[in-house]
Write a protein that binds this DNA or RNA. Structure first.
Lengths: 188, 188
DNA sequence: TCCATTTTTTAACATTTGTAAAATGTAGCA
DNA sequence: TGCTACATTTTACAAATGTTAAAAAATGGA
């Protein structure tokens, strides 16, 4: 298991000791496209790290679903709200492709955080990086129009454009699917 | 210094040992309204915790400034981008009122993170909470219209509405100041 | 108090984006 | 192939928001 973990970028900052410890709590699982791994209305007992596949996090509204995050190989799938506040939240996570994932019990992760310095700092850095990325997207909603945001998404996430349904990308970019269609049409 | 720190909510999860350690690196400073504590184009050597006062984080664009965060007593003032990537970023932090702040060297914080388990977990939780708040705001940009976002801001941040310039609140809510004026006018 | 500056509001108009519905395209399967 | 379900695009119209400029109101200092 350690060998497999080593190939995942997110673990590269961990020393062997921490990696081995994490590996003892890791189980490699496979799930099919369409599986909802994290449910907004439940306190989920696990978190996951994508070995291969694609995922999206989304929030349910009255008339629509907003996709606010995409995950690819190496990314952590975790409901931060459920994890921090220990109650159900706003995040669902769905697999958009057949995927293989490292599954770890959140209870185990909590214990490790309280026992192991390197892992606590590893968890800190994951949250900090995610925070920067989210903050930038929030700022981009004001600075850039939908066309610019789409162009940059295409450049920076070419794999996602190929495989993910446009309705998900539209809500990720903060527009309706009709608007996204119009943007795409203006480039032909 | 420990006594003063104890009164700040963000330290409440820390045990005495951790609190004392942090206190030895803390300096209480005062700055006037208008002071820019964190500059986007510099790697800032300090981070701050607001004891009293109000701050905003903003990003500069060609024609505009986007305020993406407000800080009040107990909040951490920190450029995560500069802190994590060790290079200048997109975040400026300005004081909107005369403020008193605990000042700590980032270099000291880094050392403490690598040495002290409770502090590493403390830093992790701060980032995680900030992440949730930012993620929710991003989602709200899609689910709620500007009027709803303004109403909720008024309800949840009554102190800020009283003291902060409306132009900053407008960009925080993701609209122009003209639009915010229209929203406000429709309530009279 | 008065003046200068800044902030906020108002107005008119342009543009973008949303909504609803229909048309078209696509993929899987009997 | 033809059927079905679903995804995407297109159209017409409505609503929200942006832009620019000017007026009004508020603020801070001499």
């Amino acid at each position: 298991m350690q060998e497999k973990l080593k190939n995942i970028k997110i673990f590269s900052s961990l020393n062997n000791d921490a990696l081995n410890l994490l590996a003892t709590h890791c189980k490699l699982v496979n799930h099919k496209k369409g599986t909802i791994l994290i449910h907004a209305d439940k306190v989920e007992p696990y978190f996951y790290i994508l070995e291969s596949g694609i995922a999206r996090a989304y929030s349910d509204g009255e008339n629509q679903q907003i996709t606010f995050w995409f995950g690819q190989a190496g990314d952590v799938l975790l409901s931060y709200n459920s994890y921090i506040n220990n109650n159900p939240g706003y995040e669902n996570i769905e697999l958009l492709e057949n995927s293989s994932l490292f599954q770890i019990k959140l209870a185990d992760l909590f214990k490790l955080y309280e026992q192991h310095l390197a892992l606590a700092n590893w968890g800190r850095k994951i949250a900090e990086r995610e925070l920067i990325a989210t903050e930038r997207r929030l700022i981009d909603r004001s600075f850039k129009d939908a066309t610019q945001r789409y162009r940059e998404f295409v450049n920076q996430q070419p794999e996602l454009i190929k495989t993910v349904a446009l309705k998900h990308i539209a809500s990720y970019l903060g527009v309706t699917q009709v608007t996204l269609s119009r943007i795409r049409a203006s480039y032909k």
